[in-house]
């Protein structure tokens, strides 16, 4: 079987540790990765993990990947189960100039009819994934927001729960019953 390789890279203003943490947080991919409806860590043991992803389209389409981690350097997925023609996905993290990191995403896809399905070909684009990753990373970087103004409102998820700062006062939000 043949393979098709797609690759993109982006510079991000964060430390490799944060990037690695986001990329190995398999319960949270649905928050940021395009066309992912649900994601779940199935199991983790040292540098190996198993994760399950459900796509938005086609609905209920699930695939499972085994994930091999090299801390702060690389996250490699190998597809084990699912119809999506993804063979491997590799996220390479390397330090770049100015305290930034360069993250390179490579998709290796199986050359089969599945690639002709619009839902799969949309998902298997590297540049939109990296753009979404950039936005997700910025959510953990308070310094990206302008500091010269007056903060009116901020909502954040923290270990305390969902916190709201409004006009200098802090509120802890609780879900409605």
């Amino acid at each position: 079987m043949g393979f098709l390789t797609k690759q993109s890279a982006v510079l991000l203003p964060c430390d490799p540790g944060l990037l690695y943490e986001v990329l190995t947080d398999y319960d949270s991919y649905a928050e940021w990765m395009p066309f992912v409806a649900r994601s779940k860590l199935l199991a983790r043991e040292r540098d190996l993990a198993l994760a399950e992803f459900e796509l938005l389209h086609p609905a209920k389409d699930v695939f499972v990947v085994e994930c091999i981690h090299t801390k702060n350097k690389m996250v490699l997925w190998r597809a084990i189960r699912g119809r999506i023609p993804l063979s491997e996905a590799q996220w390479d993290i390397e330090p770049a100039e100015g305290g930034q990191v360069r993250v390179r995403l490579t998709f290796q896809t199986n050359l089969n009819w599945g690639l002709l399905r619009p839902a799969y070909s949309r998902f298997l684009k590297t540049a939109p994934c990296l753009n979404a990753l950039r936005m997700q990373i910025s959510a953990f970087l308070p310094e990206l927001a302008p500091e010269e103004g007056e903060k009116i409102l901020e909502i954040a998820e923290t270990s305390e729960g969902t916190i709201c700062w409004m006009l200098g006062k802090k509120y802890i939000l609780t879900p409605a019953p």
Partner: peptide, 26 residues
């Protein structure tokens, strides 16, 4: 239990010329 970093969802800052709204990375 998995410790999580604080993650900003929304931030509105009043600037001299108007408002700067940061929402989920945009």
């Amino acid at each position: 239990a998995k410790p999580r970093r604080a993650r900003r969802i929304l931030r509105i800052v009043k600037m001299p010329a108007g408002y700067n709204v940061w929402l989920l990375g945009q």
